[in-house]
């Protein structure tokens, strides 16, 4: 039966080949090249390279603005994961019921529409909503007698405003993923529970949520990765300000690499970010594995 086994192995490699070749050519190899840069200083015009060892890393580690950006990024992640995955799950569970067809279409569309629009446009539009004295949101708040909220103009509010926009923009993605996962919950389980008189809350927590738990873990990981890379929305909404209040690590990286023309330092900060992402994800998987083992025990 060796031929069968060889056939399977050969098929395995052939099926992977197209995706992996593309991945290698357009992501992995450029990534390795960029990583090499983190140990170098490069002249942008002559494309000449001086190897400087760990100097770029020393600079990044000793730069307080990097650590501010680092802290901001983790604040953003924790809030945006809770907002996106948490609210996304709530909305998906709410949508997962007998809703008249046209209304269901409308709801899905409404919650998913922001996902479809370019962040560049979304941020542009939200700037008008958020403007402190002349913005649309504060205009209506004033009509209600609520004083102006400094959405983007105070350090304490700016990141919250960025997160609100992020949840508005991305929540629909998680709604759709959760909805697709909820379709997989066996209907007969739910019907049987309903016939046994189980309250909807019990059906929810004992059947639906446990059934889609792996998808929830996936969404948390995905939202974490997205959060670690947050860039476009902050760039257009606040440009990292006021001060450094909303500066993310990727913004710091782009600032060093492109605005300051210091590709090496930019690449070094990105490498630190990459290692951190890997660590955070490993922790998440570790926690999930630990919980699974405990449940079984």
């Amino acid at each position: 039966m060796a031929t069968l086994r060889t056939r399977e192995i050969r098929a395995g490699y052939l099926f992977i080949l197209p995706a992996y070749a593309l991945y290698l050519a357009f992501l992995l190899i450029p990534l390795i090249a960029a990583m090499g840069l983190s140990f170098a200083q490069m002249d942008r015009l002559s494309w000449t390279i001086d190897w400087v060892g760990g100097e770029n890393f020393d600079w990044v580690f000793s730069d307080p603005r990097f650590w501010t950006a680092f802290g901001n990024t983790f604040y953003f992640i924790s809030m945006s994961v809770i907002g996106n995955v948490g609210l996304g799950l709530v909305v998906a569970l709410a949508l997962d019921r007998a809703i008249p067809g046209p209304l269901l279409y409308f709801f899905r569309l409404a919650y998913f529409l922001p996902v479809l629009v370019s962040l560049a446009f979304v941020s542009f539009i939200w700037k008008f909503l958020y403007s402190t004295d002349l913005g649309i949101i504060n205009y209506y708040l004033r009509q209600l007698g609520i004083p102006n909220v400094p959405w983007l103009t105070s350090s304490s509010m700016a990141m919250i405003s960025v997160i609100i926009m992020d949840v508005w923009k991305n929540m629909g993605f998680f709604v759709i993923i959760f909805l697709a996962a909820l379709q997989g919950v066996p209907r007969n389980l739910i019907e049987a529970a309903a016939i046994d008189g189980a309250r909807p809350w019990v059906v929810l927590t004992r059947i639906k949520v446990p059934f889609i738990a792996p998808v929830i873990v996936f969404c948390i990981t995905y939202a974490t990765i997205g959060g670690l890379q947050v860039f476009d929305s902050i760039k257009i909404l606040t440009n990292g300000g006021p001060g450094d209040a909303t500066r993310s690590v990727v913004m710091y990286m782009v600032g060093e690499a492109f605005d300051l023309g210091d590709l090496g330092t930019g690449a070094a900060s990105a490498l630190i970010l990459l290692v951190t992402i890997g660590f955070v994800i490993a922790c998440q998987f570790g926690i999930v594995g630990f919980m699974r083992r405990r449940r079984k025990a």
């Binding site: 992995l28 450029p30 960029a34 990765i225 860039f231 590709l263 930019g266 990105a270």
Partner: peptide
């Protein structure tokens, strides 16, 4: 690994 790469990073290569 590719999931974690910020797109801006690989732009220059």
């Amino acid at each position: 690994v590719g999931l974690m790469v910020p797109p801006a990073l690989v732009l220059i290569p």
